[in-house]
Nucleic acid binder design. Structure first.
Length: 1010
RNA sequence: GCGCAUGUGGCGUAAUUGGUAGCCGCGCCAGACUUAGGAUCUGGUGCCUCACGGCGUGGGGGUUCGAGUCCCUCCAUGCGCACCA
């Protein structure tokens, strides 16, 4: 009886669908368990073999928990708003909703083929109005809230207004934008517009002028984590800093809770560390330096007669070095620069500011080492010594961090040191232990010197004392600073959730809840308007109540994913984002699986929104996921290039086969480009006549040039391509493209196949088998992320076709620990495939299904219960690879025992059901069960079958294992020692030596020291 | 530069509390059945050595009767942050 996986898998997938096997509902009688996958962005490329790794693991765990008696919520959906669909729409005019829905269909088909146990009744799509209605609703709650630092919680804005009316803002301790003090009388006298403007400084969703990452190529702003190394994460386009009036979310208010919350959740240490880095908490002091010689600039003299002294505020983590300050550096953008610069230096300072402005972010990052700066002519007063300290500006000081000003302590900060050396400024030693003539001494160790009241203290004590004194004397205060910036929330794009805001007299107002969802309007083009407004500006007659303008930006991609785990709990609810009953039953995610690339994006935002909704009392938990596992990436192996290993010329005669060749060469870096493709070495001839070597006619168009990638397109018809010595041809894409034509050769599962041999010829027309001839060619490959743009994608479909979904499931788990990244290869898949066949064969003999009802032998029972014990333990530890290996051992042993007993095979089938659901359903039904195996009960290990009476003790002499001796397990230590010492082997090894010591670990080992 | 993680046969990996290092699978070698093998089955396979035996978990050092596992130190790789004061 053949194991026909294709038939079996189809049959059971249909059965599950018809029977609604995976449907779940609230059931108070059973404990709940929530297993969640990070939902995918449905890209046009479909699933690749990397996606299922996490889906399979979470599915196995869900099925396991279900068999263990839990009520398991295991949903799936789509993160369906996003840039690629929109970019595609711009290029083709095709509505993103259409392409997205097509992609989703394809994803669904592929997911179904894997036999995953999702409850599809709970599917969510972030681009569906019935879903984003609630994304918009949450935005309105953010708009209607402020963060009270005293209570450490978000509160309704009306409590704040009440306070303003009563006492103004002086006693309010809020997370807010810089706001001047006002009294209750002032507040009440403010106009509606002024009041609303002020409230924006406090709202958790607010409009403000902020520096944003503007990406001209994409025509939108990007959040910090969407920018990598000065270019956009998607597409790799340059990004610049720009001041814009923008919607933001005040995530910084939650910095401390986002940080401390990490301690209570079971996430990987590296991921938590990423988040800690991103939040970037640093403790120190805010210190005021009065400008000692306010020599107002001419401008200042006219505009401002307020002669109260100007104050420069600096943030430092090393207040202990306060006596080592020899100058102050301001960021070029610092607001005080124009006020303090003396006439003498005005020109130089202005020039320097212009220079710093024009240095792009990328340049600034590229030459970090380059020291630039300019003296302002102004001096500040040291708060304790009263000394005059020169004030400089320099672009090593960032406007966006701290106060945009630093007190420079060149003796004990490497950057200040470099600056001081370069501009020949004073360097003072205040912490003993270094040699300041060579370098700064940054270590937080040593005793303080030359520092008045801090002398003799160690650094730690001095930090504490200096803060105390600084606060007491009114020179500053203790301050905790965070690197985490507020999250820019508006995107100048079409394909996203409209922000539910309208404008009246230029003031933003929230849309009433009854108006939700604010549906994405139709537009004629998905591009900005002629006047530079976002695409939504194209929508006709799109106004609130027919007269008020709507906000034209849309929400970023991460909005919908910041709360989706809640929607699954009650996905079809039209009255609330989820009912209190559902929220209180399912609570939070018990196991969350996804890639580590979301460490500082999605995973920070989802925690933020969860805490916010918790504060307002909508949900009972303030962390979204108790445990999180980052599945490793399955990397693609890119066939990067052919290297030509000898010096003759080669031709790929493509003439006649293709009417047009559109060959794109792509490299990942400039360096690779130079190494692998040199157009000096590559000549392309037009026409099929090889004797026509006129190389002037080919067209090589540089199609794209970015920081990290170059691509070239060669347009020609019927072209032979010649490569000369040491030439490299990047064939990665060529091979994929050629495989689609099914004419040349194709690559699959790491093997090279050829349909035709005479593809490559040398210039004399001799055929070369490029694959097998290392004298001519060497294949250069590289392991990298699997992605469509790298042309190294392996789809799971082909594997399923050849080996079946169960085999793919087992194999992906067998590859190694779930958290580890590894390049995809199918080298071991035959082993797994063979195992499944072997398992199948336990149930059959020549005449058919042959499971016996005879009772099992102790040996057989021992094999079974050993397996139950091991696999159950492995499951709890998410060690799926070792489970598979345990199954293999079990089946090998049962095969050796020729076991076909129901008593053994039935529990084994349940045990393996989470891994191979189709196969086990089939065997389960053949064993006479009418119900799906998912409703079975997980077998328990009975220790009585595992009891051993004897153990083969390894005996080591001086720690080196020498021989084995089998002894009864009920012997005492002394008896074991006696047996060992009297054994023949021991006497042999003992020779003339005497026994110094014997260590007996019962049931484990005996070690004899001689 | 700072932080986190990881280094085990030819390869993917295993070793749950310090107790026989290399389970399971791939590959390889030999054999069986075969017109054939990218099929199936059986046996072998860490390295050196004809063997006795020796050496082996990135390198060096330490603790211990005993270390892949604990400690110190160095090296390599991957990831995060990075002129963050």
């Amino acid at each position: 009886m053949e194991y026909n996986f294709t038939e079996i898998e189809k049959k059971w997938q249909l059965f599950w669908q018809k029977q609604q096997t995976y449907r779940v509902a609230i059931d108070a009688s059973r404990p709940k368990f929530y297993v969640l996958d990070m939902f995918p962005y449905p890209s046009g490329a479909g699933l690749h073999v990397g996606h299922p790794l996490g889906y399979i693991a979470s599915d196995i765990y869900s099925r396991f928990k279900k068999l263990k008696g839990f009520n398991v919520l295991h949903p799936m959906g789509y993160d369906a708003f996003g840039l690629p669909a929109e970019q595609y729409a711009i290029q083709t005019g095709q509505h993103p909703a259409v392409t997205t829905s097509n992609n989703i269909k394809r994803y669904r088909e592929q997911l179904d083929r894997l036999g995953l146990s999702y409850d599809w009744n709970r599917e969510v799509q972030t681009c569906d109005p019935s879903y984003y209605k609630w994304t918009q609703w949450i935005f309105l709650q953010l708009f209607d809230s402020w963060f009270n630092n005293t209570s450490g919680k978000a509160e309704r804005i009306e409590t704040l207004i009440k306070e303003f009316r009563k006492d103004g803002n002086s006693s309010v301790n809020a997370a807010c934008s810089e706001t001047a003090f006002f009294t209750s009388a002032q507040w009440n006298a403010f106009s509606e517009k002024e009041q609303q403007q002020l409230l924006l400084n406090y709202r958790l969703a607010f409009l403000s002028n902020t520096m944003v990452n503007w990406c001209p190529a994409l025509g939108t702003v990007l959040a910090n984590e969407e920018v990598k190394d000065g270019v956009s994460e998607r597409g790799g386009y340059p990004v610049e800093r720009k001041l814009m009036n923008q919607w933001s979310l005040r995530i910084s208010a939650y910095a401390d809770r986002l940080l401390s919350g990490l301690d209570g959740i079971d996430w990987s240490e590296s991921l938590k560390e990423s988040q800690r880095n991103w939040i970037g908490k640093s403790e120190g002091a805010l210190i005021n330096f009065q400008v000692a010689s306010p020599r107002p600039s001419p401008k200042e003299r006219e505009d401002n007669f307020d002669d109260s002294p100007l104050t420069i505020r600096v943030f430092t983590t090393r207040p202990d070095t306060i006596f080592g300050v020899t100058f102050i550096t301001l960021a070029p953008e610092h607001e005080l620069v124009s006020l303090i610069t003396t006439r003498e230096y005005t020109k130089n300072v202005e020039e320097y500011i212009a220079y710093a402005k024009n240095r792009s972010e990328r340049e600034r990052m590229a030459d970090v080492k380059k020291i630039t700066g300019q003296f302002t002519g102004a001096y500040a007063m040291h708060p304790f010594t009263g000394e005059e300290i020169p004030v400089w500006i320099g672009d090593y000081v960032l406007a966006g961090y701290g106060t945009g000003a630093v007190m420079a302590v060149p003796g004990h900060d490497a950057r200040d040191y470099a600056f001081a050396k370069y501009f020949d400024l004073e360097i003072k030693e205040v912490v003993a232990g270094g040699d300041l003539s060579k370098e700064s001494y940054d270590a937080k160790e040593g005793l303080i010197v030359n520092s008045d009241f801090l002398n003799g203290l160690n650094v730690k004590e001095a930090i504490k004392k200096s803060i105390d004194v600084i606060s007491y004397d009114g020179h500053g205060e203790k301050r905790v600073n965070y690197r985490l910036r507020d999250a820019v929330f508006g995107r100048q794009r079409y394909w996203g959730e409209p922000i539910p805001i309208y404008y009246k007299n230029g003031i933003p107002y929230p849309l009433p809840e009854s108006e939700l969802p604010l549906v994405l309007p139709e537009v004629d083009k998905f591009l900005p308007t002629e006047t530079g407004e976002p695409p939504l500006g194209r929508a006709r007659n799109w106004k609130f109540k027919g007269e008020y303008d709507y906000e034209l930006t849309t929400m970023p991609g991460w909005a919908g994913s910041s709360w989706y785990f809640l929607r699954y709990m009650d996905a079809k609810n039209e009255l609330e984002f989820a009912s209190a009953e559902a929220l209180n039953y399912w609570k939070e995610v018990d196991l969350y699986l996804g890639g580590s690339e979301h460490a500082t994006g999605h995973l920070l935002y989802v925690r933020f929104w969860t805490k916010f909704l918790f504060d307002l009392g909508y949900i009972p938990v303030d962390e979204p996921a108790k445990k999180l596992i980052n599945q490793g990436m399955i990397q693609g192996v890119s066939k990067k290039a052919f290297k030509f290993t000898n010096k003759s010329n080669y031709i790929i005669p493509l003439s006649g086969m293709f009417s047009k060749l559109n060959l794109e060469f792509k490299t990942i870096s400039n360096e690779l480009l130079e190494h692998y493709i040199s157009f000096d070495l590559l000549k392309i001839y037009l026409g099929s006549d090889l004797s026509n070597k006129d190389t002037t006619e080919y067209v090589i168009e540089k199609t794209n040039e970015r920081l990290s990638s170059y691509s070239y397109r060669i347009h020609a018809e019927n072209i032979p391509i010649e490569f000369s010595e040491n030439g490299y041809l990047n064939i990665n894409q060529f091979v994929q493209w050629a495989s689609n034509t099914n004419k040349v050769f194709y690559t699959q599962s790491g093997y090279w196949y050829q349909n035709k041999f005479n593809i490559y010829k040398d210039l004399d027309g001799n055929e070369i088998n490029i694959i097998n001839d290392p004298n001519h060619f060497e294949l250069i490959s590289e392991v990298e992320k699997m992605s469509k743009s790298k042309w190294n994608v392996v789809s799971p479909d082909a594997i399923i076709e050849q080996y079946g979904a169960d085999c793919l499931r087992l194999y992906e788990m067998f590859l190694g620990p779930i958290e580890q990244s590894k390049p995809w290869n199918t080298n071991g898949i035959t082993g797994v495939s063979g195992f499944l066949k072997k398992l199948w064969r336990l149930f059959f003999n020549d005449s058919g299904f042959a499971v016996s009802d005879a009772s099992a032998s102790p040996q057989e029972l021992k094999v079974l219960h050993k397996t139950i014990k091991k696999v159950t333990g492995d499951m709890e530890r998410f060690s799926f690879n070792t489970s598979v290996s345990t199954f293999m051992i079990c089946v090998n042993e049962l095969t050796d025992l020729k076991c076909n007993k129901r008593e053994i095979l039935e529990p084994l089938t349940i045990l393996i059901a989470p891994f191979a659901p189709h196969l086990s359903e089939e065997l389960w039904s053949r064993m006479g069960h009418k119900n799906s195996i998912v409703n079975a009960t997980y077998p328990e290990c009975n220790e009585k079958y595992l009891i051993e009476n004897e153990f083969e003790y390894p005996v080591s002499i001086n720690g080196k294992t020498r021989f084995q001796i089998t002894l009864a397990l009920n012997l005492t230590k002394e008896e074991v020692e006696k047996e060992v010492l009297n054994s023949e082997n021991m006497i042999k090894y003992l020779n003339e030596n005497t026994v110094k010591k014997v260590i007996v670990v019962p049931g484990r080992i005996v070690n004899v020291v001689i």
